[in-house]
Amino acid sequence: MGYAPKDFMGQKRDMGDLLKRLNFATEAELLSAIGYGEYSAKVIANRLTERVRREKADADKKAKEDAILANNQKVTTMSKEKKPVSRTEEGVVIEGVDNLLVHLAKCCSPVPGDPIIGYVTKGRGVTIHRADCPNVDSSPAMAGRLIDVRWQNLNDQSQLFDTELEIYGYNRNGLLNEVLQTLNSQTKNLTNVNGRVDHDKMADIHVTVGIPNLGALEHMMDSIKNIPDIYEVKRAQG
């Protein structure tokens, strides 16, 4: 019926911490402040349960990570058992789990059409990498946290995915303008442009663009390659 000793001590510690934060000497003073309307009971209850709710959230994350890794062992089998599926805002499908926190890796910026792999991070859900990302290796430590993932819809044009391009060429007059015109003709989402020119007049241009899928990206890259004096166009990869 009662709280375990450690729970009781934890609650006493939480109350003591709250009294210090709100500058009350005793619990009676805090209760009086609630009675006079200085603080609402809901606000005090929320603050008193911050530690418990945080510990529960951490435990839920840990349980979900364990479930991901455990279920992943079954994903590649021929079992006909219906498994939960996580469909994320990023357009990625992960079988075996649901309600999953997923984000796309910034180091390789995968887009629909890229072969991808999921990496179970500690406390952050699953990070989606391109399968050829140098930050994903076959070491035993990493391999134990890799899971199978796939794109939900390769032909969806409604969602744009940021990706970085590195463009190299001879820095003649008008080169940058032609590059930007080509990019603007194929995307409405050009969010970043950086460039430098070395002592040999070679231009190094980095851009961030939004594209719907790999096909659109490859078409964009081919268009840039057709600009005179452009020598190389490639995806940035950190």
Rank of each mutant, 00 (worst) to 15 (best):
S79L: 00
V93T: 06
A45I: 00
L146P: 08
N71D: 03
T49L: 12
H129S: 09
G123F: 13
V120A: 14
A28T: 12
G174A: 10
C108Y: 13
K234T: 03
L160K: 10
A141Q: 02
D14I: 04
T191D: 04
T88W: 10
M142K: 14
S158P: 02
M9T: 12
L180D: 01
M142H: 02
S32P: 00
K106G: 12
E81H: 05
A70P: 03
R145N: 13
L165I: 07
S139T: 06
S185H: 02
L31Q: 13
M15A: 15
V93P: 01
T208E: 14
S86K: 00
D204C: 10
L22F: 11
D137Q: 09
R87W: 01
L217S: 12
A57G: 01
N23H: 11
V97K: 03
P5V: 12
N23K: 06
A216S: 15
R51Q: 11
L18S: 11
L18N: 12
K6V: 12
V102C: 08
T26R: 13
G113V: 04
Y39V: 00
R124P: 02
L180I: 15
E166Y: 10
D198Y: 05
F24T: 03
A57D: 15
C108M: 14
D17S: 06
I128L: 15
K80H: 07
T76S: 06
E50S: 05
Y231W: 10
N71R: 05
A45M: 06
V102W: 06
A41K: 13
R53I: 04
Q11W: 07
V179I: 15
I230D: 11
V75K: 04
K62V: 07
M221T: 14
L30E: 07
R150H: 07
A141I: 03
D58A: 14
K106D: 08
Q159I: 05
E50Y: 13
L18W: 11
R87K: 01
R124A: 14
R196V: 00
D198V: 03
R54M: 11
A4C: 03
L69P: 01
N173Q: 15
G118V: 11
E89N: 09
K64P: 02
K82D: 01
Y36K: 08
L22I: 02
G169I: 08
L19M: 13
M142D: 04
T182R: 05
N135V: 06
T77Q: 06
A33Q: 04
N99W: 06
A143N: 04
D198N: 13
A70D: 10
G10H: 15
P112L: 07
K106A: 10
D156H: 02
D156C: 01
D60G: 00
W151A: 01
I147W: 10
K64A: 09
H199E: 15
K20C: 01
N177D: 07
D7A: 15
E65A: 09
A28E: 15
Y3H: 10
D114H: 15
Y36Q: 03
M202C: 04
T127W: 12
K56H: 14
L18C: 11
D222K: 13
L31H: 11
S79F: 03
V197N: 10
H199L: 05
M220F: 09
H199W: 07
E90W: 07
V120C: 11
E166V: 06
E29L: 02
I94Q: 04
R21M: 09
D229W: 09
